[in-house]
Amino acid sequence: MDQIQNPKSKIPNERISLREIFLTFLVIGATSFGGGVVAYLRAALVTKKGWLDDEGFLAALEISQALPGLNATNMSVIVGDRLRGLPGAAAGFLGMTLPGALIVFTLGFFYAAHSGDPLINSALKGVGAASVGLLLAVTLQIGHKQLEERLDVALVALTLLLVSFLHVPLLYVLLTVGPLAVFLYRPRPPSKQPPADLPAPSSKLP
């Protein structure tokens, strides 16, 4: 298993230890707050460690965002897997989740024991209200591009209507609006792309 070499990675040849993967993600997991994990990931994985170049980072992020799951954990397993296979993925995942999980569990334990305490309740009310502002800001920062084109706005509004106001189960929303949106953005015949199975050039055109 020491010979695992992922052919599609552009990672330096020297082997990165599981311990280093774990510790790197442990630092990210212990310091990233408030949904801004992408910036922390980029700083650690691209700038500091050089495990990925910008292109590789964006490719991994693209997968993380297109699939179910959180960016933070998806990135930790994808990067861990590319560096060291499944053990690397496990090391990345544990590092990423362990600090927060221990803190959340401790707080949750404390909350269960003092759930009637008015001081704790009012503190959590304040945090809950503040996170609404945080969520909205993060959503609009990510989505400002989507809110410029009419078709996108319509899809955003349709999704919001179905989930928040008509309370349609998420599975049905994804199975109906998803294919509809992909169909609306389907590849058009005039702009034919080169066949997909051509070997990818080492430096993509911008």
Binding site: G34, G100, A101, V104, S131
Partner: peptide, 9 residues
């Protein structure tokens, strides 16, 4: 809110 008080995912 408790989840927001912890770092990570």
């Amino acid at each position: 809110a408790i989840g927001q008080l912890a770092p990570g995912p």
